[in-house]
Structures are given as C-alpha cells and as structure tokens.
Design a protein around this nucleic acid. Structure first.
Lengths: 225, 225
DNA sequence: TTTTTCTTGTGATATATATCACATTTATAT
DNA sequence: ATATAAATGTGATATATATCACAAGAAAAA
C-alpha cells in the first residue's frame, strides 16, 4: 500500500520532527504491510533491507537461544522494530512476530539514512530511543537473571497493564509458553504460578483475559518473589 | 589535566571523524582523569553531566540488582562508558569501576551534543556503536539466562582472551566473586568450575594468571555446558 | 459435527546450583 | 615482620525449578 506520510496518524516521535518537504520525500520510499496474528515480520538470520515501524497491533521480539527461544519483549505501536539491526549489522539478530493483527511500515534504509544525515532533530530522537531501550534491556536482564518466577511474572503482568494495555483488565493473545519464554521459565511453571496468583487473589482469569485484582500484592510479589 | 585532542593517541572511531577545527574546540571541554584499581568512575543513581570515554586501563560496568550486583561487562579502552545514560536518562543507570589503573576522558555533555548536531559522520559512528552494544546485550542476556555455569564461564574466558587481552595468557584483576557476578553464579560455583577446567586441562592458572590450554574443549564447554 | 491439533493443568521426580560452614591461602595494613 | 582482612577451596545440605508423563480442555480444521 502506498503511503501518505504527511497525513499519517501514526507518526513516530522522530518522524514528527520531519519537515513537510521531508515527509513528502519519505512517502514514496515506504510501504505499509498488514500482518495477521502469528505472521513473522522480521526473521532472525535474514538480511535487513528496511527499517520497520509498528503502526498498529502488537508484536513480540524473540531470539533463538542455545536451548529455547527467548521473548525479548512485547512491543506496542509507534515504535521502531529492530532499529539496532538497521545500523549495526545487516543481518537480523532477532525475529519479530505479530501477536495481534498488525500494521508495519517498512522504510527504505537509504531514505532513512539520509533523513538521519540531514535532520539532526530526527536523529536526536532516534538516538534517544536507542539509548532508552538499551538501558531498559540492561535492567530487564538483571531482573531476568536474579528474580524468581513469581517476581518475574508479577513484573510482566504489571508491565502489560501499565505500559501496554493501560488497563487492569486485558486480553493477551499469547500462550503460557510465550510468557514462559518472556520470563525464562517453563510453561508448566507459568501455569502453576498463575494458578497461585489466582488462588491468592492477586489476579483473576477467564480464558485469555486477565484482571489485576490486587495491585499491592502483585507489586510485593514483584519485589519479594 | 588539560587535553590536546588533536594530538590525542586514543581517539575513538567517532572522534576520528571530527575536523581539525572541531578537535580544537573539543580540547577545552574535556579533561582526563586517572583512576586506580577499585576506584569508582561512574556511580549508579548519581547525575551524569559528562560523557565518559575510556582511554587506558580496564573497567567493569555493573548494576545493583534486586539481590546481587550484576557485572554487565568488562570494557577495554577506546570505548565510551555509559553513552546510553548520556541521552536517555540524566541519572546513571549503572556504575563503572576501574579494575586496573585507568584513564578516562570526561567530555562536557553540551559540547558532545553539539558535535552530534554538527557532524553527521561523528553521529553515525556513535549510533553504530550504540546499536552494536544493544544487539550484544540481547545476545548476552540470552546466554546468561539459558546456559549453565560451565558454558558461561567458558564464554567469559574466551571473550577475555579473544576480545580483551588478545592472548591466550592473561591476568585479570578481578575476584572470583566478580566473575560470578559476570556469569550470574555464586563465587563458590565459579571456584569449583574453574578447578574443574584446570583438572580437565582446558585452562591452567597460577595466581590471577590464566592460560587457555585447550581452546577446542573450551569452545565445546561454551556450547554444551 | 467430528476430528485433530494446540494449549493448559497437575503430580512425581530429577538436578543444577545456591547457601552454609569452616579451613586455607593470599594480600594488605600496621 | 606481624596482624588483619580479603579471597579462595571444598564438603554437606537445601531448594527452586526443569523435566517427564499424562489427562483434560479449548481451538482450529475437516
């Protein structure tokens, strides 16, 4: 689908720094593609020739580890997917898969580069996001390696409510195995701990819908396991 | 100590993109400071007002986790320390400590920002490094969470030899507790596995000097634990 | 609807590694 | 040189979580 970037309602913080002229030049160099749940958007090990930007939907970023897949994080719209790959390495170091119907805008890499070259405000915003996500990934890694399952699961549930769905009631279209890969635990352990959380009244579940019932206790589980 | 950046022998890849004029302007806005082994260069939780760049020595980057310290990585010279903090957050998200006598150049942050604003080649190089380190940190996190101690220790030893000391014989000025924090293991476990490696002829040790004896077996330990 | 596949629940068991406790060695300070 | 502190080695024990095995439920396909 051809784009009209000027009128785009899903502009990134960085793209909002672009001039009318620049946005006009951008349009013919990017395409929007729709993905269904389960579709692979970026595949680890393949060449990356575009910058991907999530306009709508929800995706997971995942890496093939030595023994399992690790889900690095869940990404919501108005975020670039795989920015670091775009520069550092030409080969995608991780995969991105849609977990809901999603719309991704693929921007030609040399167009993206020339925007960086020409517009320092744009560049600055991109750098800010790179830095933020690097710091976040450090913090997440510490939590992944040090907390135990109850703590990590509580973290993930609060993160979903606070940063992704902005509601204490939400429906995540991922399996318990995915959640396991997100907190480095087996799917059986996820099942058990979730049941524990329900039993103890921290959350309630019906199907894939999760409701956060007791924020305080969940926060305490996040801290003390 | 006042700097003469033009004549500096330790320029970063990015700084090599600066013009003679730009280097001249840089000099009055940075100072070089010497640190002894054990000195804290950057302290987590404090304000960051400078960009730090490692000219000589060796440092560790570490984060206070919920239960222990995690050593994120060991950094060798000609690398920026804490770049992501410089933009993303004004508060240092991690600490940096010298593990050998080190020299660090502190660059005034607004000077650094204006170089980014004015020199796209400089910026490009900085972005490249940011991206590379983000990808690296993803990969490291997967290894940390999935491999077991033998594998992680083998990784670290090979990393030291290949990427830091460029020799199969090297002396690391860190304790086994540090190594434990680097591979997310207790110091006792590090001691035990190191002894195992010596017994099995993968490495030899005398004091803090480590010699890699059997690369093949070490690489296989890295893979298969 | 019926069949097949995917996902979840739950007990029993195995295991890697932490923790504790103390001895010994090495480094640092007096 | 001596005292003190820090780092390392090593056994015994505890424990969180993986793995295995199978049942049951939900979703997708036929």
């Amino acid at each position: 689908m051809k784009n009209n970037c000027t009128l785009c309602d899903y502009k990134s913080a960085a793209a909002q720094k672009l001039s009318a002229e620049e946005l006009k030049n951008l349009a013919p160099n990017c395409i929007t593609v729709k993905f269904k749940k389960g579709d692979i958007i970026i595949r680890q090990g393949t060449y990356s020739t575009n910058v991907a930007y999530l306009k709508k939907g929800l995706v997971k970023i995942h890496i093939d580890g030595p023994y399992h897949v690790q889900v690095v994080r869940i990404v919501k719209p108005k975020n670039y997917l795989g920015l670091p790959t775009t520069f550092g390495d030409k080969i995608n170091q991780y995969s991105v898969t849609a977990i809901e119907e999603s719309e991704v805008c693929f921007i030609d890499i040399s167009t993206f580069r020339s925007m960086l070259q020409l517009n320092p405000d744009f560049t600055n915003q991109i750098m800010l996001e790179l830095c933020k996500s690097e710091l976040e990934s450090y913090q997440k890694c510490v939590n992944r390696t040090q907390k135990q399952i109850r703590g990590k699961l509580a973290d993930v549930l609060l993160d979903f409510a606070d940063n992704i769905f902005h509601s204490d009631v939400f429906t995540v279209n991922i399996t318990q195995e995915d959640i396991g890969n997100l907190v480095d635990a087996s799917r059986e352990s996820v099942s058990r701990v979730m049941a524990e959380f329900v039993k103890d009244g921290l959350i309630s579940m019906s199907g894939k819908q999760i409701t956060i019932v007791d924020r305080k206790m969940l926060a305490s589980a996040s801290k003390n396991g």
